[in-house]
Amino acid sequence: MVELSHDTRPIIGRGPPLVATFVTLAAASIALMVADDRYAHLDRVRHWLSAGAYPVQVAVDTPFRAWNWLTDSFADRSRLRQENLELTARLRLANLQLQRFAALEDENRRLRDMRENSAGIAERVLVSSILNVDLDPFRHRIVVDKGSEDGVFKGQAVLDGEGIFGQVTRVHSHSAEVILISDAEHAIPVQSNRSGVRTIAVGTGDSSKLSLPFVTVESDIQPGDLLISTGIGGVFPRGYPVAEVTRVERTPAATFALVDARPTANLDREREVLLVWFDPADPEVEESATTAAEPTAADGQAEAASGTPPVAAPAAAPPESGAGE
């Protein structure tokens, strides 16, 4: 029986048959996926493939950047004046807080030095802008314009002015990919600033919501609690705000309470972020004093709560416990 070929290319010089090409390339892509996902063999390959991708990302970013620049530079005078006034007011307030903070930080450092532990305080930051590039609507990833040339490394903490933003997942030579704390694959160890209860905040895929799945019904967590980073795991510096608890639902029959929190960082609006270098020495469980101290009645309670689980902490801290699981 004669069958018509589907291949309509010229008979001479048509190259390998379609099926052969298909099978070869399919096998190649499967091999690539396995190598990329299960092993880290392809980091180098990706590194120089991304050298081709970076110009494209920059080209996409440029018109948006130019537009922002234009709107900024032709902003009308009254708006600028208004903004200026607001900023001055905020600066005055911030300076006022800073005065108190400086004394506290000094004291804190002295106390830490006494215990030979100054870990967890950010040492150096690098401002980098977010490229206007959409990666995937269902993953919260962004690209920033600093890469290994600037000393960025995998697993580096990323902050914005309001709190913890995410961490670096891939480093290219001039850019890096950052996973946001709201990505469904991200988890970050946190601690309630008020009660000292430690738990893990998991991203939900919604940039205005984190979920705290491992809070037991009896835990002392209330709506309005500020969650700060613990520094456990060594990825994030200690004591930076992560989220604010928005909802706590306790059903007595369940083991865990339903707890949601809203990230303090402007995850979906920020244009610039800070890459942070700090000294991730042994994380130690204690009340962090780097956030604005709130002299409330809960202090005694906080000490009691934070004093309880000091031994278990280092064991629960593999180097990348905050990374995507």
Binding site: R9, S29, L32, M33, D36
Partner: peptide
Amino acid sequence: SPRIAGLGYAWLAGLFLDVLRGMTLGQHAL
């Protein structure tokens, strides 16, 4: 024009999309 558009370029385009979007290499390629 099936004589021009082969499988190789389609595959390469998919691979480049993987790199651009930071997906596992080979997903879009496949």
